[in-house]
Structures are given as C-alpha cells and as structure tokens.
Write a protein that binds this DNA or RNA. Structure first.
Length: 484
RNA sequence: GGCGCUAUCGUCUAGGGGUUAGGACGGAAGAUUCUCAAUCUUCAAACCCGGGUUCGAUUCCCGGUAGCGCUACCA
C-alpha cells in the first residue's frame, strides 16, 4: 500500500512552498490510489503556535484537496522515546552530558570537533549510567558508525543515487536534554510507525536524509522511497521567507486576492514539475493523471514576483495571474457568478444573485483575479449618483468636440426612453441615431459609455445598458449632460 | 571552512552527440471589435566558463565559477 505524508511544523503560516509539497504528495497518492497522511510535526514546543496550526488548516482547506489520515506528533512522544531507547540499547546512540549551546555562538568553522563532543562518544556505559542515574541531564546522540561503515547511501527518485562518507556525518541528536525528541528522530519514528512508503519533501532535507537512513536502519526498519523537490525561491534566488518577502509567500494572500484554488494548484505544479507535453493549463483531474516523480526536475524554481510591487498584481507571478484568468474563463457563468457574489458582498455591495449572474458574462474575460470584479464591475455596483468622478473631456468622442458629445447624448436621451432595453433593439436604435446625426457609430457609443460607466474602457455597450436598465442609463446620461 | 545539490530565452520549462534548440508567461508589432478585454498572426529573446572524449558537443566526463541546501539539544 502506497502511503505518503505531508508533515508541516506549525511555526508560521502555510507558505507556498509547503503548499506545493502538499500538492505533490496528494497528487502522487491520488495517482497511485495511495493514502495521504497529514501529520503536524510539532515537537518544537518553543516555536509552535495555535495561530500557525490554524493558518495551516485554513490554507489546506482552501486548496480543497483533503487528506485521509491525520496525526499530531506531540501526541506520539512515547513512540519516539521507545524507538530512541531501542537504538540506545543496541549501542547505536550515546548520552552526551555536554550542556546545550546557549545563544548562537559562532560555529567555529575550521575546528575539528564539529562531529561530536569529544569524550562523550566513548564514555564507558557504566559511567554514563551512573551520571544519568545521578540526575545529570543529557542529549541522546546517534553514534554514526565511522569504523564499521564508510558510506551511507540511498536512492532519490529525483536526484538519483546519493552517497556520503560517514566521516562527513556528525553525531546528531535524537533526544534533547529535556527528553523531547528532535525532528530527525520523531519524523523517522513516525514514518516507520505510520508505514510511510514514500517521503516527498523539500530538497532542503536532501542532506538530512543520510541521518534518516541511519535512524531507519538503527530502528531495524527499511528506509522508504525518497523524492526531494527543488525549492521555490524569490526572484533574487534567495529562499522565500516571511521576513524578507512578506505576505507574498503566504497561501492566504493568494486566496484573499481572488485566486481560484484550482488555478493556484495548477501554477504551483508547474514550478519544478512538467507534464513534458507542452500543456500548461491543466484541471485537477488532468494533473492527477499526468503526475509522476519522473517529471520533477532538479533546479530551484523562481516565483517571479516584483520585490517592491508597483501595482497590486505585481505581488504575483504573471503566469499565476494568467493561469487564474484562464481558469476563470473556463468556469460557467453559474459557477463564476457564485464565486464572485461573496467577494462583492464582502466589499459591502448587497446585490442579488440574479444581478451578479447578469453581470458575470460581461466581466468574465476582463478579470484576472476574483477581486477584480470590484473594479471591472464598479459601475454596476454603485448607485447612479456615486459613480467615480470623471473628467467631462472623456465624454468627447474621437475626432469630435464637446458639441458632438452634447448632440450625441441629447439624441440618446430622446431615443432611449422608447427603446426596449435588450441588446438588439439598443444596437439598432443607437446605430440609426448615429447615422441620422451623421457621426460614426463609435462616436455615438463612446460618450454614452463614459456617461454610463464613468470611464472609457468597459464591457460592450448594449449588453451593459441591458443589465444596467433604462432608469439608471437615463439618469447617468442626464448627469453627463450636466457636465457639458 | 567542510560536505552536498544545481546550472537551456527575463521567468516557468521541453529536448538531447549532428535540431532553424520547441512551448508557455511576460514584452513588442499587427489583425479583429463600439472602447477595453478575449481571440488570432508575427517578431525579439537562451544552452554559465574552460578543458577533454568525439568526425562532431548545448547534450557525455573533469575542472572552474555562481546559486542554493545541510553543517542546532530548529524543522
């Protein structure tokens, strides 16, 4: 049975790199009819916060992918200690009574003692037992077998065969002096107990994997399959961090801006993975079918946002925006309208579902993010007397003057009360009016568009008027006339 | 410092001993439309450097360089 896990540590919000790791695990599980395990790696009591746990669940729920089993590492400490003890009893670990480093004293690079604290590794068992019994605190360290084994190796599905000399692996800690397991121990103990078959995680763990292989072997278990993912990095190549890059790395930022989760997932999948057939826009089902570990590549991927964002959109990778627009256009009017309504309501516009449904087709091809509805459809949402102010000069058509604008709007004001507010009759009436006036159709439409929308760039005129209705249209033309 | 991983257009990527090095986003130009958007067409844009191996390397090998990761009683 194939089992994968996503194991975030709740020390901050769910960030995009973690989200991608979750997604790849999920895809692999679904592709191979396996089980997806969610495990909170919360052994670092100092740094864990409830807010972080909430943020992680919030982000994962938004992705709407789900998982099959859920665990909390802090509830499994007995298991961790049991496995640590088993390793100790086999002589594969030793007690280190050296006081823990306080503060981040400089790791004196060149010194030779980085592998372990001299003396402790070879401390006779009897003395070790005596000191422990006397209540001295100690960390439990793995005794890396430098005499009996010269290398540690494993196969990585992405990076291939990996080999490292034991001389280059330090005696890492299994248990802290307060008895809490370290990440390495807890992670491996749980992976064994939960029968995880494939560990898919960030490449920052590639070098740690040698230690994990040692723990698996020390505990008498077969190491699972490994697949490390290239990291997601900032445009300057640096690691994504909250401190340096702010909210752009948080999943909730994407949600709040109006990304569709399916588009966000699609975007993240394209960073460090490729279906290799030139497809870019993929549905969830297509991703499941196309996903494979072989499609993952080895170089870090840049999320291409602008460091100081000049516009709100620059917070996001242009490709993410494009993909979101693609997914928005792929939605039916019913579905898109249902997604847009809460956004509009949240902004304080109490419009009906029917109104939203009527507006949706007019803006579907004009928005990249759900929040864009507020700017793209503002003139549908605002009251007639609350349109954003515009320069009266905007009312003047191309190659025309104020007199032409006046003429056009006056004529429209005369003709519209008797026109049925449907696309075709409006089209007919206004085109005829332009001919009678001797102006081009565009010269007729543009002043009306500005009068009604408050700006030059807007959806097609007749559909707009139809949705807006006769009353608002006439009121807004009157207002425009007042400006001329 | 030590150990390791990586290197194709600005970005995401395909490819692979002989190719016009392909696609996408973004950019530019044009078509179309009542404006905008969408759509369509076209254009500019890349194999990190140096040695090998080879008839021939962007591709294979070695070295360099650069970036990143690990080097915690963080994860």
């Amino acid at each position: 049975m194939l089992r994968v896990r996503f194991a975030p540590s709740p020390t901050g919000f769910l960030h995009v790199g973690s989200a991608r790791t979750f997604i790849f695990n999920w895809l692999y599980a679904r592709r191979n009819r396996g089980t997806m395990v969610l495990r909170l790696d919360d052994t670092d009591v100092e740094r864990n916060t409830d807010a972080s746990v909430n943020s992680i669940f919030e982000g994962l729920r938004w992705l709407d992918l789900g998982w099959d089993e859920e665990y909390k590492q802090s509830e499994r400490l007995a298991l961790h200690r049991h496995i640590a003890d088993a390793i100790f009893q086999k002589g594969l670990a030793y007690r280190d009574f050296t006081p823990a480093h306080t503060g981040d004293t400089e790791k004196s690079g060149a010194n030779q003692t980085w592998l372990f604290n001299p003396g402790m590794r070879e401390l006779p068992r009897a003395e070790s037992d005596r000191r422990a019994a006397a209540g001295e605190t100690f960390a439990l360290r793995f005794r890396v077998p430098r005499d009996t084994a010269e290398t540690v190796s494993f196969h990585d599905a992405v990076y291939g065969d990996q080999l490292k000399s034991t001389a280059d692996i330090e005696d890492f800690a299994l248990l802290r002096s307060d008895g809490m397991p370290t990440y390495h121990l807890a992670s491996c103990a749980d992976d064994i107990d939960l029968r995880i078959s494939h560990i898919i995680r960030g490449q920052d763990h590639l070098s740690n994997t040698y230690k994990h292989v040692l723990i698996f072997q020390g505990a008498g278990a077969h190491p699972p399959q490994f697949a490390h993912l290239p990291l997601l990095v900032a445009p300057d190549g640096s690691k994504l961090s909250k401190r340096r890059h702010g909210p752009v790395v948080s999943v909730t930022t994407y949600r709040d801006a109006g990304f569709l989760p399916e588009a966000f997932i699609n975007f993240l999948c394209l960073l460090g993975w490729s279906p290799k057939d030139n497809r870019e826009n993929l549905t969830r089902q297509e991703l499941i079918e196309a996903f494979s570990l072989e499609g993952i590549n080895r170089a870090n991927a840049v999320i291409n946002f602008k460091e100081p964002a000049a516009t709100p959109d620059e917070t996001f990778d242009p490709k993410a925006l494009w993909l979101n627009a693609e997914h928005i256009r792929a939605l039916t009017v019913d579905h898109l309208s249902a997604r847009l309504l809460p956004v509009v309501h949240a902004a304080g516009f109490p419009i009906t579902a029917d109104k939203m449904h009527a507006i949706t087709p007019l803006i579907r091809e004009r928005i990249k993010l759900l929040r864009d509805v507020l700017t793209a459809a503002d003139f549908f949402l605002l009251a007639d007397n609350q349109l954003p102010p515009y320069d009266p000069a905007e009312l003047i058509p191309q190659k025309g003057d104020a007199a032409m604008a006046l003429k056009v709007l006056t004529r429209a004001r005369e003709v519209l009360p008797h026109t049925e507010f449907k696309h075709d009759p409006l089209d007919q009436t206004l085109r005829n009016a332009s001919q009678e006036l001797g102006v081009k159709a565009g010269q007729m439409f543009q002043p009306i568009r500005v009068a009604v929308c408050g700006r030059k760039n807007a959806p097609p005129l007749f559909e707009t008027l139809e949705v807006l209705g006769r009353e608002s249209t006439l009121a807004r033309i009157d207002q425009a006339l007042g400006k001329l």
